[in-house]
Design a protein around this nucleic acid. Structure first.
Lengths: 245, 245
DNA sequence: TTAGACCAGTGGTCATACCATGCACACCAG
DNA sequence: CTGGTGTGCATGGTATGACCACTGGTCTAA
């Protein structure tokens, strides 16, 4: 008990994995290593850090899980700009065991999108508007197809966020993409049950588009919020009453 | 080139790490292992899966990175309900690599906070309001202290997001915390230059608090938005005109 | 009864050897 | 000169076996 205390009298903040991970983390956050750089070979790194190769590899694998590096067999470990693809894994696991998390993420989605649409009102380029218009037509065209409809819906909303020209918002939004897409598909199942939902989907998206074209921030925000609220209500109705004429 | 194809004629979809990770992933998604369960010991698992222990550990570490399991020294590897805390690491890395991102992140911050304040209007508990009130007093008390003032400011806004009771929003907000705090401190430097900024800081936060107490979503959102806009303007003025009476 | 020591189970680390892949360079044939 | 080809090295990928360190329960002795 008290014997072990002597052994670690000096500096032993973390050891092994934590030490390595903390070190690499530092390097990244301090900007010492930039995207595109190639890390030192594993054999060299583990010498420099005073750990064994398996431990070093655990840390590298951890970073690769976070999307910070790519480990390429026969090439090396290269730093990459983390994209949101990692979060796909995360949400997959998270939702498998915690379906109620969907609602929570949905709230974050609303936050992102409402801010993005405000920005879009002042920043949207002609190309953005054209993309939105095309997406809107797709939504209308696929209104009777559950699968294609879900995709159209998602594409429209993503186009909306893109039009905001805010990289971070877009990044966050795309992080939730897998989840959102699944939700869209679930929602589409309701189309059969509630006939009026088709009109709601079509008209809402059109009004959203028009508000952006008119560059009316407050109105766009309000309409979009209402759009989500209605969708929420439909899901709620579907969840509470299993059968419906 | 063509020789290697023969070697893997049968089932060799992945080998080593991928194989193990895929296996565990299956187990989770199929619901074969539930939160609270304890995985088999490493030595046993790696035998069952036909891989070495280092490789198995890489996979376990990967899962722990995704927040799916907790690895406890001397105890075992236990499955946990994934929460959004993992995203901390991710966003920390993701947001760190772009220095010019400050303004952009600010926009994301506005998104989070405006949505959170709306939720807070309907969900804030007495404890939340009390925390907000205390933070508000701190803001007033430290109005003349740049450093302490920045901290108070941040604490108030975080309390706001907490009152929204949306884990994902809070997680995203905290991921931006370091950047935000820096911004708050920079803003405080302006206090000396513009005397009226003190009144603005104090009054705005008070009105924000009152709106939440009144549970008026639209008003709270609007006030908060204006609050940010004014802060933005101050920063803009400070940036464009270096000197000012 | 209880405080302490002990022990078995489990994760944490290490060292070394060998396999697998990519890439570049040199080499050879045209 | 040119193009293809093969060989070798650098690097990641895996396996093995041993030992250390922590946790929890059990057993012993006061």
């Amino acid at each position: 008990m008290h014997t072990s205390a002597i052994t670690r009298t000096e500096e032993t903040p973390n050891k092994g994995f934590d030490k390595v991970f903390a070190f690499l983390r530092e390097q990244f956050l301090a900007g010492a290593i930039q995207p595109g750089d190639r890390l030192s070979p594993e054999r060299e790194l583990c010498l420099r850090l005073g750990v064994s190769r398996p431990v070093l590899r655990e840390a590298l694998r951890a970073l690769s899980m976070l999307g910070v590096v790519d480990i390429l067999h026969g090439v090396g470990t290269v730093v990459r700009r983390p994209d949101t693809s990692v979060l796909d894994e995360f949400f997959t696991f998270a939702l498998a065991q915690q379906p109620d998390m969907a609602d929570d993420v949905l709230e974050a989605r609303i936050a992102i999108e409402c801010q993005a649409i405000r920005l879009a009102c002042s920043r949207a380029t002609l190309a953005d508007l054209e993309r939105l218009r095309a997406a809107l037509e797709d939504v209308r065209r696929t209104i009777n197809d559950e699968t294609a409809g879900a995709t159209s819906d998602y594409i429209f909303h993503e186009a909306l966020v893109r039009a905001g020209h805010a990289p971070t918002l877009l990044c966050l939004y795309r992080a939730m993409a897998p989840l959102l897409h699944r939700t869209h598909q679930e929602r589409r199942v309701l189309v059969r049950r509630y006939a009026d939902i088709k009109r709601y989907v079509a008209e809402d998206h059109e009004r959203i588009f028009e508000a952006v074209v008119a560059r009316d921030e407050a109105r766009a925000d309000a309409i979009l919020r209402k759009h989500f609220a209605i969708g929420d209500e439909y899901r709620h109705r579907a969840a509470t009453s299993a059968v419906m004429p």
